[in-house]
């Protein structure tokens, strides 16, 4: 555990909490992609199956449980409790276009051809593209609420910090996991355009609106 990894994990947690609080306080999930949230839940479920088979540390297990519960909670709020506020006609990304190729790729490129390993690989690949329905939704409506952009910034920062963590681990421990690194880089690159808008607009007190 190094500081980049820790801050990355906390940034990830902060993102999830920002989103949950936004939905809870405003009693509305307008502008949030339910499809991205379903994909993130699927990511956590398939990745953390080792919660019962492979104990790493109390920190690791507790964080896994928190991520699982909070992401499932977000899906519950969106599809049940506040379903009436869910913007489904703007959330039209076809998730099978992500899930099917990612599923195929995880069978082809993995560390080990075993069920748990393939599911872990699937979750790593899926996470890298799971934000696309949300970004697609913002590009359709042309804007995002400021709180939603804070959520996206925290979520994007998490994987960017993990990249720094991997560079650090490579030099200090000789550690590298090519699958995680390549997927993590793809994931971070997808946020670059958003990061630019966030820094040039949201941080200057303006709302995130895409140029027409």
């Amino acid at each position: 555990m190094n500081v980049f990894r820790l801050v990355g994990d906390l940034s990830h947690l902060l993102a999830i909490i920002i989103l949950l609080l936004k939905i809870w306080k405003t009693r509305s999930c307008a502008g949030v992609s339910g499809k991205s949230q379903i994909l993130f839940s699927l990511v956590f479920i398939t990745r953390y199956l080792d919660l019962f088979t492979n104990f790493i540390s109390v920190y690791n297990s507790v964080m896994k449980i928190i991520y699982l519960v909070t992401s499932l909670g977000t899906v519950y709020l969106m599809y049940f409790k506040f379903k009436a506020t869910y913007d489904s006609n703007h959330d039209t990304f076809r998730i099978e276009f992500l899930v099917v190729p990612v599923g195929g790729l995880s069978f082809l490129v993995n560390h080990d051809f075993t069920p748990l390993e393939i599911l872990w690989t699937f979750s790593i690949y899926l996470e890298s593209v799971a934000i696309l329905p949300q970004l697609f939704m913002i590009s359709k409506t042309g804007e995002a609420e400021t709180i939603t952009s804070h959520y996206l910034f925290a979520l994007g920062s998490y994987r960017a910090l993990y990249i720094v963590n991997w560079v650090y681990r490579y030099y200090t421990e000789g550690f590298f996991d090519l699958i995680a690194i390549v997927a993590g880089c793809v994931q971070t690159i997808l946020y670059c355009d958003f990061f630019y808008l966030y820094i040039t607009k949201v941080l200057k007190g303006k709302q995130l609106k895409l140029p027409a």
């Binding site: 990894r5 080792d50 790493i56 872990w120 550690f175 996991d177 090519l178």
Partner: peptide, 10 residues
Amino acid sequence: RKATHAKDEL
């Protein structure tokens, strides 16, 4: 250096 597995990460 051989690739290692990032299973200790979240």
